[in-house]
């Protein structure tokens, strides 16, 4: 399984502006974050065009503040150079695919 691209305070805004993708806000000792990461990897393996990235909330406070992330895991859904939705908490691969298609 390919790892998610690791972003920081310096480059997350650029990712949002340029990619169709999903950005996961996570914490290293958070089991639900690890599960969502697996779900995103599975979604990518199934042929999703969305680029998958993650950002560590403990090391990147500016991104956390700017996007008002209060809980992990939070997924920021990005299309056409902008944020089109967000999803907090757990969901499965099918639900993620459906969510990303419909937003």
């Amino acid at each position: 399984m390919a790892d998610l691209m690791e972003l920081t305070d310096e480059n997350y805004a650029d990712f949002i502006a340029r990619q169709d993708g999903i950005l996961l806000f996570y914490k290293s000792l958070c089991p639900h974050c690890k599960a969502i990461k697996k779900v995103m990897q599975r979604f990518a393996e199934k042929g999703s065009e969305a680029l998958m990235a993650q950002i560590d909330t403990e090391a990147n406070p500016q991104a956390v503040q700017a996007l008002e992330v209060e809980r992990v895991p939070t997924m920021i859904l990005i299309k056409r150079g902008g944020i089109v939705g967000r999803k907090i908490g757990l969901l499965n691969v099918k639900e993620l695919a459906e969510l990303y298609k419909t937003i």
Partner: peptide
């Protein structure tokens, strides 16, 4: 309610 939690490691940061 979005502010009811079961995992402090996951949701404590806010």
């Amino acid at each position: 309610c979005q502010q009811v939690h079961y995992c402090s490691i996951c949701d404590g940061i806010g």
